Amino acid sequence: MTTLEPAVDNLVALESEAIHIFREVAGEFDRPVILFSGGKDSTLLLHLAIKAFWPAPVPFPLLHVDTGHNFDEVIEFRDRVVERYGLRLVVAKVQDWIDDGRLEERADGLRNPLQTTPLLDTIAENKFDAVFGGGRRDEERARAKERIFSLRNSFGQWEPRRQRPELWNLYNGRHRPGEQVRVFPLSNWTEADVW
Rank of each mutant, 00 (worst) to 15 (best):
D100K: 13
G156H: 11
T67I: 03
N153C: 05
D72I: 04
L62N: 02
A92R: 12
H64N: 14
P160A: 00
D41Q: 00
L151F: 04
A56L: 03
V74P: 00
N112C: 08
E104A: 12
D9R: 15
A142N: 06
L103T: 08
I50R: 02
Y171I: 07
L11P: 01
D129S: 01
F71G: 03
R136H: 00
G38H: 00
I123G: 09
Q95K: 14
A49Q: 01
I148D: 08
S37I: 02
S187C: 06
R176Y: 05
W189E: 02
P59N: 04
I123P: 10
V58N: 06
F53T: 13
D66G: 06
K127R: 13
G68H: 09
L170M: 11
R141F: 01
E104K: 13
L120E: 15
D66E: 10
E83L: 11
D9Q: 15
N153R: 07
W189H: 09
N70H: 04
L114R: 11
R147D: 12
N112T: 12
V82F: 07
V82W: 04
I21V: 15
G133P: 01
V90A: 04
F77I: 03
L89N: 04
G109E: 02
A142Y: 09
A52L: 11
F53H: 14
W168C: 14
N10C: 02
A56R: 10
E179D: 12
F149T: 10
E191D: 08
G133A: 12
Q115Y: 07
T43Y: 00
G134Y: 08
R176S: 04
N188F: 04
A52I: 09
R78Y: 07
V183I: 07
A56W: 05
Q180L: 15
R31S: 11
G135H: 04
T116L: 06
L170P: 00
E179P: 13
E5R: 15
R136C: 03
D108Q: 07
D72Y: 10
A13V: 15
N112D: 06
P160D: 00
D99G: 03
S16V: 08
T67C: 01
I21M: 12
P57C: 03
R111D: 00
W195C: 00
R174V: 01
E17Q: 15
R147W: 02
V181N: 15
R84P: 02
